[in-house]
Nucleic acid binder design. Structure first.
Length: 575
DNA sequence: GCCGTTTTCGGCCCGACTGTTTTCAGTCG
């Protein structure tokens, strides 16, 4: 039976959702939600913990511990089974409609016998909602539109990579307004979750009205969903909702904390504020007695006034960061400034590279990189790979370029292909002639877990392999990736002195933040790599850094935060 | 249901917007 943190977390979250639909005590609902969050965020595999250790996790009380233990022993939770039997599936489906909550879903089921979206659609057509208490014409209209929107999309979340360009464009347009001060996108996009449900925009300004109007009238806006004095919501192109808040500059930091979330992080921080006689909202941190504003202008100021270390946005997931920041033990995570170079990049020597070696290296140097590894595809990748002869020729070409690239050390490497049993391109002697090698899976992506894990571990055993590229092979929103045993992979990485890549492409983010956290806890090293195929890809590093931050990685955990000598030591240690 | 440098009981984060209400409930984030 599957027995992972994710499984258990899903069970608890479903209990919470069903309790909410039943209209139970909201605090009980929240308790189960929190328990689900705690389990999901626990970096240690639940299967390795005793029931006593699980019960000691903060947020897991007697009830949740009992349910978890029941699930471990029997594979089911009686309470959940009973809730499922008790709450009609149709009610849960109705509550998925935006704007339609538990109360209305229950009402529609009880009064009209509606069960699911098709029923709701039919009832709207027949005008059967008329006369129900609290449901007027506008509500009907809103429900119709919500149903239309749901029908047009199969999922209400989109890959962050799809939302980033829209968010950045909207920020640029708002920033150009005379009334606008600072402008930022916040929410799950700023935390760089893999997928996002909407775009949260924040503007500092003393004149909210023209800023709100600009978003309503923007060419990217399809429809206005809500428009108040302090908040505007619109539907943008691509079906993405954008929420805009405008606050006075003195509240910028508090608003950014509030709007960045996560919700669970905010609740945790606000509870801390209350215990200290303060109250935190989007307008600032206030003294509960005098009402005076204690902090609010910057995020740093808000956290400091709460006696906490600053928490980088990607870490704000209520995964233990609030307590750690309060106790002064929050790890000093890697920042973009710590990263000194890139260890995985392509040029037009490979079939899929879009820019010349000279252009790529020149751009890297201008960005301030101290080193850059040219790692074009190796020969076994038939479409794009370089033969042994071409590799030798490329090495010569790098020699000739070196004079014009003062300050940038160029490493000659390759992106090797991991074969069915972990075998690699070329031969051992030739491989050891490279400065640095990445090895990645490009074929046979559907092998069973054990086999897939074994071949990657076999590649890690090779003395010439320094990094495993995109270890999971997923494309967010498109394909799930290879089935691997993450625990075995991170252990092998630590043991063999092989780094695991954090591929910075927002379409990949691979390793994920969660896996990064497991890797660094196991003592493995990670490498933040752009895997650039074009000049534009060089700008992706920030997303790799954010993902490493989500995984609580310090600069010391990141291979390309070392200087060239440190890098060469890492390579030499394996040979 | 969870938790305790106020507490083993009595609290539990905070605010915006809409619609249908003559003062607030529902929903959302």
């Amino acid at each position: 039976m599957a027995w992972t943190n994710e499984d258990v977390s899903r069970q608890l979250a479903e209990i919470a959702a069903l309790l909410r639909l039943r209209g139970e005590d909201p605090f009980k609902v929240r308790a189960y939600e929190r328990a689900a969050g705690v389990i999901a965020a626990t970096p240690v595999d639940l299967a390795e913990l005793s029931p006593e250790e699980i019960a000691r996790l903060k947020g897991i009380g007697r009830s949740s511990a009992r349910r978890i233990d029941e699930y471990r022993r029997t594979g089911r939770i009686d309470m959940l089974e009973r809730l499922r039997a008790d709450v009609p599936a149709g009610v849960a489906e109705l509550a998925r409609v935006p704007g339609l909550g538990p109360k209305t879903a229950r009402l529609l089921h009880a009064e009209l016998g509606l069960s699911g979206l098709d029923d709701l659609r039919a009832a709207l057509e027949q005008g059967r909602l008329r006369g129900l208490a609290g449901l007027g014409e506008k509500t009907e209209q809103n429900l119709r539109r919500a149903l239309e929107r749901m029908g047009a999309k199969d999922d209400d979340r989109v890959p962050a990579a799809d939302a980033l360009p829209v968010a950045e464009e909207l920020c640029a347009r708002l920033a150009a307004l005379p009334a606008a001060g600072r402008v930022a996108y916040a929410g799950s996009l700023r935390r760089l979750r893999e997928t996002v449900g909407d775009i949260d925009l924040l503007v500092a300004s003393d004149q909210p009205a023209p800023v709100m109007a600009a978003l309503r009238d923007d060419s990217l806006t399809v429809r206005v969903l809500a428009a108040g004095e302090k908040k505007t919501s619109v539907l943008t192109v691509r079906g993405l909702q954008a929420d805009l808040r405008v606050v006075e500059p003195a509240a910028w930091g508090a608003a950014l904390v509030y709007f960045t979330g996560s919700k669970a992080h905010n609740v945790r921080v606000r509870e801390r504020a209350v215990r200290r006689g303060l109250t935190l909202n989007e307008y600032g941190l206030f003294d509960r007695v005098t009402g005076g504003r204690v902090a609010g202008r910057t995020e740093e100021e808000v956290y400091a006034a709460l006696g906490m270390a600053f928490v980088p946005a990607p870490m704000r997931e209520d995964a233990g960061e609030v307590q750690a920041a309060a106790d002064g033990v929050l790890p000093d995570v890697v920042t973009a400034a710590d990263v000194l170079g890139d260890l995985h990049g392509h040029t037009d020597w490979s079939g899929d590279g879009k820019a010349s070696m000279q252009d790529m290296l020149g751009a890297a140097r201008r960005r301030g990189d101290r080193y850059w590894a040219v790692t074009d595809h190796a020969e076994n990748l038939v479409m794009n790979g370089l033969s042994r002869e071409r590799m030798v020729a490329q090495r010569g070409a790098i020699e000739r370029l070196r004079g014009g690239l003062s300050g940038l050390t160029v490493l000659h490497g390759a992106e090797l292909n991991i074969g069915a049993d972990g075998e690699l391109d070329y031969d051992r002697e030739f491989l050891l002639g490279f400065d640095f090698c990445v090895a990645s899976v490009h074929t046979l992506m559907h092998r069973p877990r054990e086999e897939q894990t074994r071949r990657i571990v076999a590649a890690m055993e090779h003395p010439a392999v320094n990094v495993i590229g995109h270890p999971v092979g997923r494309i967010i929103g498109r394909r799930p990736g290879y089935d691997i045993d993450v625990e075995v992979i991170v252990e092998a990485a630590a043991r063999t002195g092989t780094a695991l890549e954090v591929n910075a492409s927002p379409r990949r983010l691979d390793l994920s933040g969660r896996m990064v956290r497991r890797a660094v806890e196991a003592g493995a090293t990670v490498a933040i790599s752009c895997d650039a195929h074009s000049l534009g890809d060089l700008g992706n590093r920030v997303y790799g850094v954010a993902t490493a931050q989500r995984g609580w990685a310090r600069a010391a955990d990141v291979l390309n935060c070392r200087d060239v000598d440190g890098l060469r030591d890492f390579v030499a240690a394996k040979r």
